[in-house]
Amino acid sequence: MAEHTSEHHIVPLKYYFGVFALLMVFTVLTVWVAQFDLPGMWNIIVALTVACIKATAVVLIFMHVRWSSKLTQVIIIAGLFWLAILLIMTMGDYLVRGGWGVLGVQPN
């Protein structure tokens, strides 16, 4: 392991099992929480937070990003940044048109 190929990192299996357990627990959690009628937008906020935690765990451990090069990490952050541009700038337009309610005719 200590030779020149040390950047070739082998992740110990216990990490994989840990992430697996976390994913299963959070899947159950998200279904369980979803049956309660939380006030306001909290249902979707909780659901997305749980999904983000699950996704982060997969990215960091299963996809080895915790141990990968800076460049890989920059690429991922860039991807999220551009996705945020697309979502925020577009939603910004809709939001400031006077709230979600005035978005046009509602079909039946």
């Binding site: 700038m89 910004g92 809709y94």
Partner: peptide, 20 residues
């Protein structure tokens, strides 16, 4: 990537978005 809305000034895009 931050300027695409200038193609939509005369669509129903909001004025505030247009300003940005």
């Amino acid at each position: 990537f931050l300027v695409w809305g200038h193609h939509m000034f005369t669509s129903s895009q909001s004025m505030y978005a247009g300003m940005v």
